[in-house]
């Protein structure tokens, strides 16, 4: 099935962001693990795998629309040096991702590609959940302090 080129470009852009996020979350998860913060490792590792599943959906959709998914392009990774900073950077990236998905949904809507739109909307829902978790962690660090917060993450 021949897809709309505007939609394909939008999907590829989201794919690039997904691939970037997979890597950032994965590295952060294993850095948490290396320092002994098992709770953080579990959560962030799972988020990375979820991102990978989203990327898979987008790749399949692009192929179905007779496009070529670009797996070569990768954005800049924002890797922190300590756990608090890493969570903040993840939060920042996740927020940007959400904004881009919203824009892509609007593109799909205007081009009448309702199936791509539905797929992105489902991805967006999971993104918002993880962003909420990240927001909570950042505000927890603000309220109870970094040391107290990290003690709970062992």
């Amino acid at each position: 099935m021949r897809g709309n080129s505007t939609v394909l470009a939008a999907l590829n852009k989201i794919l690039t962001r997904k691939l970037t996020t997979i890597n950032q979350f994965f590295l952060h998860a294993r850095m948490h693990k290396n320092w002994g913060f098992e709770q953080l490792n579990n959560k962030v590792y799972k988020a990375s795998i979820d991102e990978m599943k989203h990327a898979d959906k987008i790749i399949e959709r692009i192929l179905l629309l007779d496009g070529l998914p670009n797996l070569q392009e990768l954005g800049k990774l924002y890797i922190g040096e300590e756990p608090g900073e890493m969570l903040k950077l993840d939060d920042k990236l996740q927020t940007e991702d959400i904004n881009h998905i919203r824009q892509a949904i609007a593109v799909c809507e205007s081009e009448h590609d309702f199936v791509s739109r539905k797929m992105l909307a489902e991805i967006l829902e999971q993104q918002e959940e993880h962003q909420d978790w990240l927001d909570t962690q950042c505000s927890l660090i603000d309220t109870i302090g970094l040391e107290n917060y990290l003690q709970q993450q062992l």
């Binding site: 890797i79 922190g80 040096e81 903040k88 920042k92 927001d135 950042c138 505000s139 603000d142």
Partner: peptide, 13 residues
């Protein structure tokens, strides 16, 4: 509560 990034000076990344 939005995280504070701006005007934070040197970060660690």
């Amino acid at each position: 509560m939005p995280p504070k990034f701006e005007n934070a000076g040197v970060r660690s990344m």
